[in-house]
Amino acid sequence: MVEITNVYAGYGGKPVISIPYLSFKAGEITSIIGRNGSGKSTLLKAIDSLIQYTGSITADGMEIAGLSHKERARTVAYLPQTLIPVRLSIRVLVSHGRYAHTGISHRLSSKDRAMVDNAMELADVYTMQDRWINEISGGEVKRSYLAMVIAQNSRYILLDEPAAGLDISHQIMMMTILRRLAAEGIGVVITSHDTPLSLTYSDKVCMIKDGALLAVQAPSEIEASDAIMRKCIGYGIRTNEDEAALYKYRLEK
């Protein structure tokens, strides 16, 4: 379990988020929702020790900031929202996911290569593994980086807006992959502006406004406490009655 206790984090000494207590369980998908600038990305960066913070952030009882770089990478993986279309083949990029698992020469073992293959298959980039990241579409770039993070085989995966920029079928595919990872026992934490999508696929929703935690609820409980959701994103949420609808939830004025 990732536990965040009395955390203040921000940039240039100015706190953006203030969280008394929050936890993410392994084997679950937790969505962090909130408006632009509410502190969603800052929270993920603090968990991955990318920014300075005060307080405590632990993973399975270990202070994440106290881990070595490689131990931290084996514990927590993080994918930022903006990904660089590097001049590398997809296979090489995904292989970088094994960086924290390899020795000083960083030579991949047959087990590492099998994990890279498996990650590429899961993210649906296996058949295009020799293509270059700077020559593929934005959605394919995102899936390639997701494969890299999967190959990293960390116990917790933090994804900043993983479905943004993907077409609808790949959005569903992305969330299905994340569900599969959660079923394998990995704790998945995502930020998302697409509330119906994230509610449909999440076990828990964490609502943030102006850096403060409003509530943590299961999607099924949110409709009953509609006011909190309205305070968080400005709209209410309703269960979709239409069974043919793509998502289980819909937004309401």
Partner: peptide
Amino acid sequence: PLGDDVAHELG
């Protein structure tokens, strides 16, 4: 080339 955030997260 992956950027500082991704390089950091990879360990």
